[in-house]
Nucleic acid binder design. Structure first.
Lengths: 109, 109
DNA sequence: TTGACATGAAACCAATAAGTTTCCTATTAA
DNA sequence: TTAATAGGAAACTTATTGGTTTCATGTCAA
């Protein structure tokens, strides 16, 4: 079940990588532009970008000597699918509790 | 922004921990019951359960000498909030593309 | 009340991950 | 065509993580 979700979750588990996502949410960017936002070497950011790519979260386009990175449309789907599947079980009891409370409110004191 | 989402994403990034979640989706369980489903020592599972707890994904109830674990209602909220925020940017271009295609289909050949 | 059960805790080990520095290659522009 | 720019790759270091084994503690049941 959900065989290849590991790369997605792994990619999202690092704060620097989520920071990169926040940047790319503002539009595509080259490696150097991205790295300029962090107190970290360029190679380190390059590694993070590779992890994000392997997680299917971003796509990369080589343009001359530059590499343009952007959020990959649909890249979140494995994660949202996983969430959608399990959130049912998660909030089942919460829903039951809500219903019980509402039913109780309708009754006499 | 989203200051304490790290423990949630970190907890979800391990396949064994997601396996534990899958088990707990079937109902609450003691440590021993959970560990019985994995080819792994009990202390290892206990550590994973601690990480899941710190991520707010499960809750634990001590009952005599047993400890009952279950999915914590609302535990996924930080993650779903994060997803909801960024999925907008993610699929923005996808949506634009869709609209462009649809508009194009409506035009003359 | 004693033995078995359920778990916690500590010490330790090995693999992985995140970061660095250094050097190399390819492209662009003067 | 040469210098500057953009990035890739490799080697290395250190911290974290995921796992183990061993021992201690508290609770239940015979």
């Amino acid at each position: 079940m959900s065989l290849s979700i590991q790369p997605s979750f792994h990619a999202l588990a690092d704060p620097t990588r989520r920071g990169i996502i926040a940047i790319l949410a503002g539009g595509e960017a080259r490696l150097g532009e991205i790295a300029g936002n962090f107190d970290m070497s360029r190679p380190a950011i390059a590694k993070h970008l590779r992890v994000l790519k392997e997680g299917g979260l971003i796509e990369v386009e080589t343009r001359g000597r530059e590499r343009i990175h952007r959020l990959r449309p649909g890249g979140l789907k494995p994660v949202t699918d996983w969430i959608a599947h399990y959130s049912r079980f998660w909030d089942e009891k919460l829903d039951q509790l809500k219903q019980a409370v509402e039913a109780d409110e309708g009754e006499a004191p």
